[in-house]
Design a binder for these strands. Structure first.
Lengths: 349, 349
DNA sequence: GAAAACTGGGAAACCCTTTTCCCGCTGAAG
DNA sequence: CTTCAGCGGGAAAAGGGTTTCCCAGTTTTC
């Protein structure tokens, strides 16, 4: 390996000095030509461009950042391991940032505080322009302790500090969408089967489900809510509990598509037809579950990729000094499938 | 916002000059004190450390990189969108790199060539130390065209250039593990249900399944392989086809856990008991599928996180100039669950 | 014909850290 | 009393690019 002149394919990357030498001008002039600054003769500019092209010159982004103070990078920290919910958020954010020519440092803390602090410090050492923090589910988390100030946006799991910028899906609104849809398609006795009561998303969805049913003057089943786990087997189990407690049930709203799928299996196996005898809805629009279910299940899509994109947008605004603050709630979307179709009898009658 | 002195909480980050001023030494001395280089009086070193602590000084990583030529960053490009298979690889790589104090730029090309080229250029502008390319499934891909030389490792989807460094799971070995396990537990007539024949993973698994059965002197069903889609509904459908073609079937090996789950449902609903009447195995160890299946299904784990970690290791070796080359195949692991238990009758007998 | 106004481009400072080289000083050896 | 070695630390260059300031030459203006 001999030391070769710059810009050579076998050597190091060409610098602005190499371009300057080839074009017969000073480095400052090259910079002006390449960036369209300053006053240069058209012929000179052309000569510089040609030299840069010939050497495949690309400016060293670090040298630029050192001077400008902007790195066009942001850190993306997932506090739990990256999962089914944080992944779409993360991809949405990456998408929006990439369009803004910003690159993303991915950091998975695996729920480890030490690792989190270490990542934060390393990112700060690299002078990232901002930080996105995303959690596993929507439970609030204490704000990051930052040794130096940098714009931060919390996505999915909001910060407990109301002055921080947080973005969360509208769990309450999602639940209402389902209840309204069930009522609109003629259902009258609704039970809700969901995950652990101590999960924010389970609690909020349950609360607003019950409230929406009451407000509509309809009857919830008794008991109206079954808390359990986010699993198919709980879905199957809860179906039996619910049907025994209230055989007149004509709609089941599940807090997740996984639970809904378990419920679908249990209903089919106990001889109840979905949607003819009983309607079934889920939450999350986890397509692999919702569509493979028999029948495919109506559910709520939290628009997580959109949430990620919005988080990126808010971060870029904050970086530019136009800082919003507070928690922003993004609407959910109802995805209607066979499981809540109006029963043939009703539609004929 | 007034301009504040450096190291002030409200101002910009402290520089080595601020530390030098506070400690009453030159910047060069601060660098030596902080990095343990050069010869300094213990008292001086202590004074510098104290000043650095007081100002919360952290060296600017970009300035360091500019000088050293190493950025301690790598690009991680997913050629398809990040999916179920690439995610564990990605996390494994991030884990191993993070332990080596290397940060990861995440780039999702969404299968777009233009976007891929753009990302590559942007990463190169940032002078990344290396690049990991990961695909969706194990189909080979043409090597990246790089404007300047940088170490690259392909994970999951190998490069078509045999001189590139590629890491792939041992699909063939995984299939053999299953067949051997089925034979060892007394099964004799095995059918294979899998995805599209033009998918490398489907083709390889099918080929080695058939071969392993023949080599053991056992009988494959006729036909031995059913190609279709990677879906539950294909799993259900294929079960009916296979049982009709060969009612004496006593084992079903599916090319994915999704197919296996569909098969489990179809078998149960057609009155065949798993594992008593027929054994069932899958591939991927997608736990949400394999464990929720009734019964939970024996499957092959491709150790994708480990594959990602190894990819990161190979990349770091290549960066350090110890370049291996060629395609490395990583072993799979059999995960045994209820679906292939030895039938009670057989174990009693 | 002289002063003013442009034009085009170079020199140098700056961003922040590391590293090499060198110098002044002290104590020891001859 | 010299010479030498070692100690402690400073000055400056390097890394790659941007920007400000300035200057020499040309054109315009009165």
């Amino acid at each position: 390996m001999s030391v070769t002149p710059r810009g050579d394919a076998s050597g190091r990357a060409a610098t602005i000095h190499d371009v300057a030498a080839l074009a017969g001008v000073s480095p400052g002039t090259v910079s002006k030509a390449l960036n369209g600054r300053g006053r240069l003769r058209a012929e000179t500019r052309e000569r510089v461009l040609e030299a840069a092209r010939k050497l495949s010159f690309r400016p060293n982004a670090m040298a630029q950042s050192l001077l400008s103070g902007r790195t066009f990078t942001v850190g993306l920290i997932t506090t739990d391991s990256i999962g089914r919910f944080s992944l779409p958020v993360l991809l949405g954010a990456e998408d929006a940032l990439g369009a803004g020519r910003i690159l993303v440092f991915l950091c998975d803390t695996r729920g480890d505080q030490i690792r989190e602090q270490h990542y934060v410090q390393t990112l700060l050492d690299r002078r990232i322009d901002g930080l996105i923090i995303t959690g596993h589910r929507t439970d609030p988390r204490p704000p990051l302790s930052l040794p130096s100030p940098v714009p931060v946006v919390y996505a999915l799991g909001p910060s407990t500090d109301p002055d921080d910028i947080s973005l969360v899906p509208d769990d309450a609104g999602g639940a209402r969408l389902v209840v309204e849809h069930l009522l609109a398609t003629g259902r009258r006795r609704i039970a809700h089967i969901t995950g652990p009561a101590h999960h924010a998303s389970a609690a909020v969805r349950a609360e607003h489900t019950v409230r929406a049913v009451r407000e509509a003057g309809a009857a919830a089943s008794a008991p109206p809510v079954y808390f359990g786990e986010w699993s198919e087997s709980w879905g199957r189990q809860a179906v039996h509990l619910a049907l025994r407690a209230d055989p007149s049930l004509d709609a089941l709203f599940c807090g997740s598509d996984q639970i809904a799928r378990g419920a679908a299996d249990a209903l089919r196996e106990s001889g109840r037809r979905v949607p003819d005898d009983i309607a079934l809805a889920g939450f999350d629009n986890w397509e692999i579950m919702a569509e493979a279910s028999r029948p495919p299940v109506t559910t709520v899509d939290m628009n997580l990729a959109e949430l990620g994109r919005t988080a990126a947008l808010r971060l870029m605004e904050a970086i530019d000094g136009r800082r919003a603050r507070g928690t922003e709630t993004l609407p959910c979307r109802l995805v209607i499938r066979e499981s809540t179709a109006v029963p043939a009898a009703a539609s004929r009658g």
